[in-house]
Simulated assay, not measured.
Amino acid sequence: MTDKTSKVAIVTGASRGIGAAVAERLATDGFTVVINYSANAKSAETLARKIEGKGGRALAVKADVADAGAVRGMFDAAQAAFGGVDVLVNNAGIMTLARIADSDDALFDRQIAVNLKGSFNAMREAGKRLRDGGRIVNFSTSVVGTKLETYGVYAATKSAIETMTAILSKEMRGRNITVNALAPGPTSTDLFLEGKSPELVERMAKMNPLERLGTPEDIAAVVAFLVGPDGGWVNGQVLRANGGMV
Rank of each mutant, 00 (worst) to 15 (best):
Lys196Ile: 13
Gln111Trp: 11
Gly127Arg: 12
Asp230Lys: 15
Leu116Ala: 10
Thr12Val: 06
Asp105His: 12
Asn91Glu: 02
Ile112Leu: 10
Pro229Lys: 12
Pro216His: 03
Asp102Tyr: 07
Lys206Leu: 06
Glu199Asp: 08
Val61Leu: 02
Ser140Tyr: 07
Asn138Pro: 11
Pro198Lys: 08
Val65Tyr: 11
Ala106Lys: 11
Lys206Trp: 08
Leu116Pro: 09
Gly19Val: 05
Leu107Glu: 12
Val87Pro: 01
Met123Phe: 11
Arg25Ala: 06
Ala48Ser: 10
Ala77Ile: 10
Thr141Phe: 00
Val33Glu: 01
Gly231Trp: 01
Val238Asn: 08
Glu211Met: 03
Gly55Ser: 11
Ser43Lys: 14
Ala27Thr: 08
Asn176Gly: 05
Ser140Asn: 15
Asp67Gly: 04
Ile112Gly: 08
Ala70Asp: 15
Ile177Ser: 07
Phe139Thr: 06
Glu162Trp: 02
Met74Thr: 14
Asp104Glu: 04
Phe225Pro: 04
Ser159Phe: 01
Arg173Cys: 06
Ala126Arg: 08
Val114Cys: 11
Gly84Glu: 02
Ser43Phe: 05
Asp218Phe: 00
Ala77Trp: 13
Ala23Met: 13
Ser188Ala: 10
Ala39Ile: 13
Arg49Met: 07
Met204Val: 06
Ala63Lys: 03
Val223Arg: 02
Gly185Thr: 03
Gln237Asp: 13
Asp64Tyr: 09
Asn36Ile: 15
Asn208Leu: 00
Ala77Cys: 04
Val34Trp: 07
Asp29Cys: 03
Ala60Tyr: 12
Ala113Trp: 10
Pro184Ala: 15
Glu52Ala: 06
Val114Ile: 15
Thr12Gln: 02
Lys158Met: 07
Val201Gly: 03
Ala160Val: 13
Gly19Phe: 05
Lys170Cys: 09
Phe82Cys: 00
Ile10Lys: 02
Asp230Val: 06
Leu130Lys: 06
Thr178Gln: 04
Trp233Thr: 15
Ser188Cys: 05
Asp230Ser: 14
Ser188Lys: 03
Lys206Glu: 13
Ala205Leu: 03
Val223Ser: 01
Ile100Val: 13
Ala39Tyr: 14
Asn121Gly: 10
Lys117Asp: 13
Ile136Cys: 10
Val33Ser: 02
Met172Pro: 09
Asp76Tyr: 05
Leu88Trp: 07
Gly134Tyr: 00
Lys147Ile: 12
Ala81Arg: 07
Glu149Thr: 13
Ala14Arg: 03
Glu194Pro: 00
Met123Pro: 06
Glu125Trp: 10
Arg99Asn: 11
Val223Asn: 00
Asp86Asn: 05
Met204Glu: 15
Leu182Ala: 01
Val89Trp: 07
Gly152Cys: 07
Gly13Ser: 10
Val153Trp: 13
Asn138Cys: 08
Thr189Lys: 02
Lys7Asn: 04
Ala77Lys: 11
Ile161Asp: 09
Thr178Asp: 01
Leu213Gln: 14
Arg173Pro: 06
Pro186Lys: 01
Val144Leu: 09
